[in-house]
């Protein structure tokens, strides 16, 4: 089987699709001619229309656009949760189309962390158990190591004292911090955040945004964030705008 996690040699001279801003590092994600069409018997809906995009290592990219323009679909495709109907997607320089369900799951587990608008924490599990989740599906990580790494991730988001709480006992902002800690626990190269401040008031939203910015600057974590908030989008290194499934800037 292909070693999905072997170091990838990056050919900086290789032609890349034009992006909005110069890239600080190697390409983590490369989308070429990505299309997503939802087809029913009578209607064909184009969610993404020939999207070309490169996300480089260490970048903080925000994606904006009106509701229904395909932002979340794009994020799902970037996160290997959905398949495009056309085009190619490369993760760390390798096309992922031919990978099996098992291989895609392994890639998601090792390389990608997700933050969702509605947190999607498992209410039946404690904060610590929630944060451990990505490590549960990683072989060779002992229970002790899982605990340590989850605790370290929670410390990073300022919730080291809340490990035994349950999601229902936390505020919205705290829940989103837990969700970020969960995304960090597996030490992924890429964090995909789908409107992470969408359910929060402005103060908490700012806190979460600051946290993501800090992670990007201090840890060099690559972040792609879908947002409706122009102010927050402007704080990121690159802003991509979408309209009707197409990239407009």
């Amino acid at each position: 089987m292909t070693n999905l996690f072997a170091p990838v040699a990056v050919d900086s001279a290789s032609p890349r699709v034009a992006t909005a801003a110069p890239a600080p590092g190697r390409a983590v994600l490369q989308l070429t001619g990505i299309e997503k069409v939802y087809q029913t018997r009578t209607i064909e809906t184009v969610a993404l229309n020939h999207v070309n995009l490169t996300i480089n290592q260490g970048e903080f990219v925000s994606i904006m656009g009106p509701s229904g323009c395909g932002k979340s679909t794009l994020l799902s495709i970037m996160g290997l949760l959905d398949e495009p109907t056309g085009g190619t997607l490369e993760l760390d320089g390798r096309p992922v189309q031919s990978y099996s369900d098992k291989e895609l799951a392994r890639l998601r587990n090792h390389k990608i962390g997700f933050v969702f608008q509605s947190y999607h924490l498992i209410n039946d599990l404690s904060v610590l158990d929630n944060v451990e989740l990505p490590l549960l599906y990683r072989s060779g990580v002992s229970g002790k190591e899982r605990r340590q790494r989850a605790y370290a991730a929670l410390e990073k988001v300022g919730l080291g004292a809340r490990t035994n709480h349950f999601p229902s006992q936390l505020s919205g902002g705290q829940r989103q911090r837990v969700a970020i800690a969960r995304a960090l626990a597996g030490q992924p190269e890429l964090i995909l955040a789908d409107e992470p401040t969408g359910n929060l008031d402005s103060v908490m939203g700012e806190e979460i945004m600051d946290l993501l910015l800090t992670l990007n600057r201090q840890e060099g974590t690559t972040i792609v964030m879908v947002t409706h908030d122009e102010q927050q989008a402007l704080k990121t290194q690159r802003l991509i705008r979408f309209f009707d499934g197409s990239q407009v800037s």
Partner: peptide, 16 residues
């Protein structure tokens, strides 16, 4: 459903 989605997103395979 949400739990299933999250588990898949974080690396759970169908068999897991």
């Amino acid at each position: 459903a949400s739990e299933i989605g999250v588990r898949k997103a974080f690396g759970a395979t169908t068999s897991a």
